[in-house]
């Protein structure tokens, strides 16, 4: 990997257990700043568990135990003094199914600001517009900001969720299968948006769709389960290398559709 890139997220010896079950085992990798890193692998290989570890979302699930270290800008996010609200504001998340609130388009994007206690109307309006522009949605919704978000198409709803995540000014955006519920054109629009966003944000995406990882990401991590069904990191590198000359035969088998 290119040594000149600044590391944003550093993961060291990460183990995550659901009860007694070891879901991911000994993951160590560095995620460069302002780039798109994709995590690919078959179902059940721990991709989403890994992603949720990056903003401690796993802790919302019962009986989860996390070992190891995840540092963002050199600070371990698992140290006891970390403010979870701040952490999740800094590390936003976009999910598989667009999940707008049953509120207006405007209120969806303003939501994060309001729960931060921001009252300044002008500031809220500015932030909503900026976030919608960054999410490449502004032109499509600027005339109907006070209509229900649920009237938007799936692709628009997903971009709205991205705008909602951007409104609280995160540095990292986690995306868990952000396009799997969208049609091919809406999918390409999300990918195009991701390429624009990486100029300012660090993006980590989990996807079943390895063509999507190939198209959009700069770096790709391939996960696979071992004989005990624990997810492991098999190979990690430049996306071009992973998709044209993977080093591990298991990666080759997976991306050529012969394995996994």
């Amino acid at each position: 990997m290119n040594n000149k890139l600044k590391i944003k997220i550093s993961v060291r010896n990460l183990n995550i257990y659901y009860g007694k079950f070891l879901a991911i085992k000994n993951i160590t990798l560095d995620i460069p700043e302002r780039s798109i890193t994709a995590v690919i692998g078959p179902s059940g290989c721990g991709k989403s568990t890994f992603l949720r570890a990056l903003n401690r979302m796993n802790e919302l699930l019962p009986d989860v135990k996390t070992e190891g270290e995840v540092s963002i800008d050199g600070r371990n996010i698992y140290s006891p003094d970390v403010d979870l609200v701040k952490l999740r504001r800094n590390v936003g998340m976009v999910f598989q199914r667009p999940n707008p609130f049953p509120k207006s388009i405007f209120e969806n994007v303003a939501f994060g600001l309001r729960i931060q206690g921001i009252r300044d109307r002008e500031r809220i309006e500015e932030t909503v517009e900026l976030s919608l522009r960054r999410a490449a949605l502004w032109d499509e919704v600027k005339d109907k900001l006070y209509k229900s978000a649920l009237e938007l198409s799936g692709g628009q709803q997903q971009r709205l969720c991205i705008a909602r995540a951007l409104a609280v000014q995160p540095q990292v955006i986690l995306m868990d299968e952000p396009a799997s519920a969208l049609d091919p054109i809406a999918t390409l629009r999300i990918e195009d948006l991701m390429r624009e966003l990486k100029e300012e944000y660090t993006i980590v995406i989990v996807t079943h769709n390895m063509q999507q990882a190939a198209r959009v990401s700069d770096f790709t991590a391939f996960f696979l389960t071992d004989e005990d069904r624990a997810g492991m990191l098999i190979e990690y590198g430049n996306t071009s290398d992973i998709f044209t000359m993977p080093k591990d035969p298991r990666t080759e088998g997976y991306i050529t559709g012969r394995y996994g």
Partner: peptide, 9 residues
């Protein structure tokens, strides 16, 4: 060209 075939389908 090889990279575009692999990555952009």
């Amino acid at each position: 060209c090889m990279e575009l075939i692999a990555r952009q389908q």
